[in-house]
Design a protein around this nucleic acid. Structure first.
Length: 264
DNA sequence: ATGGTTGGTAGCCAA
């Protein structure tokens, strides 16, 4: 089973890219971030026509996440628990039936957190990461195959940036950000891409500005964390980098994993 | 090199 995460940076502006990519890549489950639309305006018909079930947690103008799946959803949960005052649409979880039992997949869009000097922005990021850690701790107790996928807005290590020195003042590379990501991983997750390569020079995002793509000035910030039950079924990972060279691309590319699971 | 580009929208805002 192929599971992919992709920050699409506006699903309505990118629907042609998305349907073309779905046909070419043939994923079973897709976690989208930054759909930048309310649920009512999500281009669901074009995606359903390709055989996908669609569940969204949208928002006007910015944020918004979705899961597309060839498997039917047994359960859907929207929003990350732990703060009723948080009105950002950054989290959706789906549960599916496989030959190995339940498969739980979450699509997350972690807050950017910049600028670091803006205490509201950066502390919101750290608070969101703390909530995510509590949620993950609870879910891991279920001992199910769990894939926690999305745009983490975290550069885990210097090797995950072409020019790490450029990111020292950035919320994506702060010591507190990196530590919170390590704490999450250390609950018992396997970080898919990192576990099968040394991942140095593997990037998932290139800024639109200053010719970052042409200069390969990229960073690796889109990640898939696997519970032990998912990691035991994990065989390969790939970054679909060629998509960044398409017309009107997202600034992120799809990151895919293969799990040896079959739909029930 | 303190720049530059994009999407959604009427906030120069968020990234």
């Amino acid at each position: 089973m192929k599971i992919v995460t992709w920050n699409i940076n506006g699903v309505r502006a990118r629907i042609g890219n998305l349907t073309h990519w779905l046909t070419e890549s043939a994923p079973d489950i897709v976690c989208l971030q930054e759909i930048k639309t309310v649920d009512e305006q999500f281009p669901r018909a074009e995606i359903e026509a390709l055989g996908y079930n669609v569940e969204t947690n949208g928002q006007k103008s910015f944020n918004g996440v979705a899961i597309l799946s060839k498997l039917p959803f047994d359960e859907v949960n929207r929003g990350l628990p732990g703060d009723d005052a948080d009105d950002h649409a950054r989290f959706i979880e789906g549960v599916f039936s496989t030959d190995q039992g339940a498969l739980r997949v979450a699509s997350l869009y972690l807050p950017n957190g910049n600028p670091v000097e803006d205490e509201r922005k950066f502390s919101y990021k750290l608070a969101w990461m703390a909530r995510l850690e509590r949620w993950a701790e609870e879910r891991l107790r279920l001992e199910e195959a769990l894939v926690l996928a999305g745009d983490y807005n975290v550069i885990p290590e210097p090797a995950d940036a072409r020019f790490p020195e450029n990111w020292l003042g950035d919320a994506l590379f702060q010591p507190q950000t990196r530590q919170a990501f390590r704490r999450l991983k250390n609950l018992g997750f396997t970080e898919a891409v990192r576990s099968v390569t040394d991942s140095a020079g593997v990037y998932t995002f290139w800024d639109y500005q200053a010719g970052a793509w042409q200069k390969n000035n990229g960073i690796r910030i889109d990640h898939l964390l696997l519970s032990p039950e998912a990691a035991n079924r994990f065989s390969s990972a790939s970054v679909e980098k060629h998509v960044r060279a398409w017309e009107k691309p997202s600034d992120h590319v799809p990151v895919a994993i293969e799990l040896s699971l079959q739909p029930a």
